[in-house]
Design a binder for these strands. Structure first.
Lengths: 231, 231
DNA sequence: CGTAGACAGGTTGTATACATTAAGCTGTGC
DNA sequence: GCACAGCTTAATGTATACAACCTGTCTACG
């Protein structure tokens, strides 16, 4: 707990200027704390305690917590005290399963509507991905990966589809990168899979793009399943 | 606006006892008002005004509005004043498209895990559906339809999948029933489609159940597309 | 000795007061 | 008559005070 307080206080200085409202500030700081496992699953989050901790009054903190509840990162316990949600591997698999239904179609639609400018941007992103993978720079890779999927999302005319996928990913963000983070080999193959997806998009072959994404998520699933057997 | 006030006040008496917290009460009443088009798309929702209208203080009203924002029923306008979200037919089609990706799989998984007790309950529901359809009782049909999908959702081991589908449906609830509501013929065929789905589930034929749901949503999509051409 | 009830502490739910910002209007000056 | 500036108004964002509730413990009584 003491470490947590230090961490959150530290974040304060860094972020206070960039966040517009206190509510957003509270939201991001709590969210970050959960993602960095400073706030551990099952830990009760008292509004009063958090507000003291963050130096923000209860109202914005409370609103931030509500938002996190709706996103599934925290859950309301029987006694109404919200706690940090615990994520099982099954939860991650559930998310990936849904993604396997949505993302191939997302990419297919994107490939049909993507602009030339977006393709060029995307090409740069893929190259950055490949560079990051070669240098085993996980942090950089993860950042660029987000951009990659963001561009595809933007290119998809069904905005709600993109939004839904993002929500699903957020839900397991703190553990989702287990895959590439702990398996250097996956980082390489995963990057190759991205390249295949991009090539199909560039060729405006939407069916191929869809299949490439199916392959990608299938590989991801297998990697996760292997991980289970290690336990 | 005057009608709206009357309506909301009316709802007050009916619901105040059943809702536990003021926040939930505000949430449901505003949501209902939107669904019944008492609050029309584009209409600005002032927290102060709503709180006076509902006889609830700003805090719970504000929280209810935030929840509605996250569910996509209202949106934050540039000036930060939230307004009732407008739903185009394209929005509905977007939702249905995503459902076409998710619900067949939802039913497939449900068919594999459903208990005997749930099957029996579901059978009763299907019969009620058929009765309601014969009597052209739209209100009753819609209610039972919700139960039908609820049971399937419960039977699906991937809880997040069920939750995601429900969220998507909520998003267009105020216009989703356009289909059956304005087309008596669809009510009959739609009921038959439900029967086919149920029969497959009962037979524990998950593949057939999945295909039946695909057919169902496909028919729904076609019905909606016809509707567009009428404009 | 065991159980039931009451009290203490902390928690959330709610109301309200204050701060701040944006917009519209009015009044004045050109 | 038009344009600009300042003010009024009302909105949201924030803080805080109060109420109701639940829990867990301690005490008193059977």
């Amino acid at each position: 707990m003491d470490n947590l307080e230090t961490y959150l206080t530290h974040q304060n200085k860094k972020r206070s200027s960039s966040n517009r409202t206190r509510r957003e500030e509270a939201y991001e700081r709590i969210k970050d704390a959960i993602r960095h496992a400073e706030l551990k699953p099952g830990e009760p989050l008292s509004e009063t305690r958090l507000s003291k901790l963050l130096g923000i009054s209860r109202t914005p903190v409370r609103e931030a917590l509500h938002q996190l509840v709706q996103e599934g990162l925290v859950e309301t316990a029987p006694g109404q005290t919200v706690t940090v949600a615990s994520r099982s591997i099954q939860d991650v698999l559930d998310v990936v399963h849904i993604r396997s239904l949505l993302e191939p179609e997302l990419v297919r639609l994107a490939a049909e509507s993507i602009s030339q400018a977006q393709i060029e941007t995307l090409e740069g992103v893929v190259i950055k991905l490949e560079e990051a993978a070669k240098q085993h720079d996980l942090a950089a890779w993860a950042k660029v990966d987000v951009v990659f999927h963001d561009i595809i999302k933007e290119a998809c005319p069904n905005k709600l589809l993109g939004q839904t996928v993002v929500q699903l990913k957020n839900r397991v963000h703190q553990v989702a990168n287990i895959d590439t983070h702990t398996n250097p080999e996956r980082l390489i193959t995963c990057t190759q899979e991205h390249r295949v997806i991009f090539d199909a998009i560039k060729a405006k072959d939407s069916q191929a793009a869809k299949q490439a994404m199916e392959t990608h998520i299938s590989a991801l699933t297998n990697s996760l399943l292997k991980r289970i057997s290690y336990r």
